[in-house]
Structures are given as C-alpha cells and as structure tokens.
Amino acid sequence: MALRDDDEPRRKVVHDIGQPLDALSVGDLEERIELLRAEIARLEAALAARQASRAAAFDVFKLPG
C-alpha cells in the first residue's frame, strides 16, 4: 500500500537568518514568511508583557511627588 501525502510526517520548517534562499520554492518561501510572522507576533507579545510588568513595578515603587 502506497503512502498518501497526508500520511507522511511533515518536516519541521526551520529558517536560519541569513541562509541562502536560492534553492527554496515559492511555497517554501511563503511557509517561512508565515513562520517568521508568527515568531514576530510571539516576540511582540512577550515584549508587551515585559513592558507592562516593568511599568507596573515602576508604579508600585514610585515615590510621591
């Protein structure tokens, strides 16, 4: 019995910053763009959380005027 495409395990997409892009197909490039957009969103969420925590800490320790 032959394997169908959806029976095959999906390879994990990894992108190394600065790697050559010549050998990648249009689909590969689109997949990596989506991967990087998701990672940027994750980083931005972590940054916003850190900034909120920092602001809250400054408010707690702020000396009266």
Results as ranks from 00 to 15, higher is better:
Leu35Gly: 04
Ala23Trp: 01
Gly27Lys: 06
Glu39Ser: 05
Arg42Thr: 10
Pro20Glu: 07
Met1Tyr: 02
Leu24Gln: 08
Ala2Ile: 04
Arg10Thr: 02
Val14Gly: 00
Arg32Phe: 01
Glu30Ala: 13
Glu34Arg: 14
Asp7Pro: 00
Arg54Cys: 13
Glu34Pro: 00
Gln51Phe: 02
Ala48Asn: 10
His15Asp: 07
Asp7Glu: 11
Val26Thr: 11
Leu63Pro: 02
Ala2Tyr: 02
Val13Thr: 05
Arg42Phe: 04
Ala45His: 07
Arg50Thr: 03
Arg32His: 11
Ile33Asn: 03
Leu63Ser: 12
Ala45Met: 05
Val60Gly: 05
Ile17Asp: 10
Glu30Tyr: 07
Ala55Lys: 12
Lys62Gln: 15
Leu21Met: 09
Ala45Tyr: 08
Asp7Thr: 00
Asp16Tyr: 02
Val13Phe: 01
Gln19Met: 10
Arg4Glu: 12
Lys62Ser: 15
Met1His: 06
Gly18Asp: 07
Leu36Ile: 13
Leu43Ser: 05
Leu47Glu: 11
Ala2Leu: 05
Asp22Phe: 04
Gln19Lys: 09
Gly18Ile: 06
Gly65Asn: 14
Ile17Lys: 09
Ala41Asp: 15
Pro20Ile: 05
Gly27Arg: 11
Ala57Pro: 00
Arg50Ala: 15
Phe58Gly: 04
Glu30Cys: 06
Pro64Trp: 06
Lys62Ile: 09
Glu8His: 01
Leu47Phe: 03
Asp5Gln: 11
Glu44Leu: 14
Pro20Ala: 09
Val26Glu: 08
Leu35Trp: 04
Pro64Phe: 03
Ala56Trp: 03
Glu44His: 07
Ile33Gln: 06
Asp59Leu: 14
Leu47Val: 14
Arg32Leu: 05
Arg54Gly: 01
Glu39Asn: 09
Gln19Thr: 06
Lys12Thr: 07
Arg32Ala: 00
Ser53Asn: 13
Val60Ala: 15
Lys62His: 09
His15Val: 03
Val13Trp: 02
Leu35Cys: 02
Arg50Lys: 12
Ala38Arg: 14
Ile40Phe: 05
Leu3Lys: 07
Phe58Asn: 07
Leu43Arg: 15
Leu3Tyr: 05
Glu31Lys: 08
Arg10Gln: 01
Ala49Arg: 15
Asp22Val: 08
Leu47Ala: 14
Arg10Met: 07
Phe61Asp: 13
Ala52Arg: 15
Leu43Ala: 10
Val60Ile: 15
Asp28Asn: 08
Arg4Gly: 08
His15Arg: 09
Gln51Trp: 04
Gly18Met: 02
Arg4Thr: 14
Phe58Thr: 06
Ala56Val: 08
Val13Lys: 03
Val26Ser: 07
His15Met: 03
Val13Asn: 00
Lys12Asp: 06
Ala52Val: 01
Ala48Met: 09
Arg32Asn: 12
Asp7Val: 00
Ala23His: 10
Phe58Ala: 11
Gly18Trp: 01
Pro64Gln: 14
Ala45Gln: 10
Ala56Arg: 14
Lys12Arg: 07
Pro64Ile: 01
Val13Ser: 04
Arg32Ser: 01
Gly65Tyr: 02
Asp59Phe: 04
Asp6Gly: 00
